[in-house]
């Protein structure tokens, strides 16, 4: 018997015994909620086993997650988009206020959507290009004015402001220096040597502070999730807290 098999069987054995004790002890009952807690606990411990090394328990939990997640997203897209925005409107289900023109217009994205699915065929897969052209074209068209308005102009406007002789003014000056130096760092058409190299070095410092802040936030977010999972295992499952 391989080490992986022993680990797998050992875990199953301990898990069954532990849950039997919890059921007999009255900490868990024969309800769907308790079954859910047991399932979630098993999957959580299986996934954490990856911290030891890649093993069958982790792979099993990982593939269960992949399958469930794929079907979950199917549910989201079906009920919210395809059923909620297409089927309900085209067939006038319930008290949908859509007019006949709006209903007929919905046939266009429906046909385009079906054309996307032709990608699965080698013979007629080229038809999907029409749908992709629509998605990419409209996406590009939406991007240009929105990025100009929401990002370019508003960010430049907020950066170039009158500098006053106080702390706020000093901060504004620092922001201006930071923005310019970061932009110089990302400007690869000129070799980063001499003055340009010095400015881009300042840009790197600003970027490092920003990445450090994002890094710190990420650690905090992940740790709070970790605390949540450990709390679940100790409190909801094992009832030792």
């Amino acid at each position: 018997m391989t080490r992986d098999s022993m680990l797998f069987l050992g875990f199953i054995g301990i898990f069954v015994i532990l849950n039997a004790i919890l059921l007999v002890g009255g900490y868990l009952d024969m309800s769907w909620t308790s079954l859910g807690v047991i399932t979630a606990a098993g999957l959580t411990v299986s996934l954490y086993s990856f911290l030891y090394r890649d093993n069958p328990l982790f792979k099993l939990a990982e593939h269960i997650f992949v399958g469930v997640a794929a079907a979950y997203i199917f549910g989201i897209y079906w009920y919210q988009s395809l059923y909620g925005e297409v089927v309900v409107r085209i067939f006038g289900i319930g008290d949908d206020p859509a007019t006949m023109t709006q209903r007929l217009l919905l046939l266009v994205p429906s046909v385009l959507g079906l054309l996307i699915l032709t990608r699965m065929s080698v013979k007629i897969g080229w038809l999907s290009r029409i749908s992709f052209a629509f998605v990419v074209g409209v996406g590009a068209g939406f991007t240009i004015p929105r990025y100009i308005s929401a990002f370019l102009l508003s960010q430049i406007e907020a950066t170039i402001r009158p500098i006053t002789m106080d702390v706020d003014g000093l901060n504004l000056l620092l922001i201006l220096i930071g923005v310019v130096s970061v932009l110089v760092y990302f400007f690869f058409s000129v070799e980063h040597r001499g003055v340009v190299g010095g400015i881009s070095k300042v840009g790197i410092w600003f970027l490092m502070i920003s990445f450090g802040a994002s890094f710190g936030y990420t650690i905090m977010a992940r740790l709070s999730l970790l605390i949540g999972r450990i709390r679940f295992l100790l409190d909801d499952w094992l009832h030792v807290m």
Binding site: N171, L174, G178, A213
Partner: peptide, 10 residues
Amino acid sequence: VPNLAAKRGI
């Protein structure tokens, strides 16, 4: 200040 400046540049 520094984070905002870097984010704005990006």
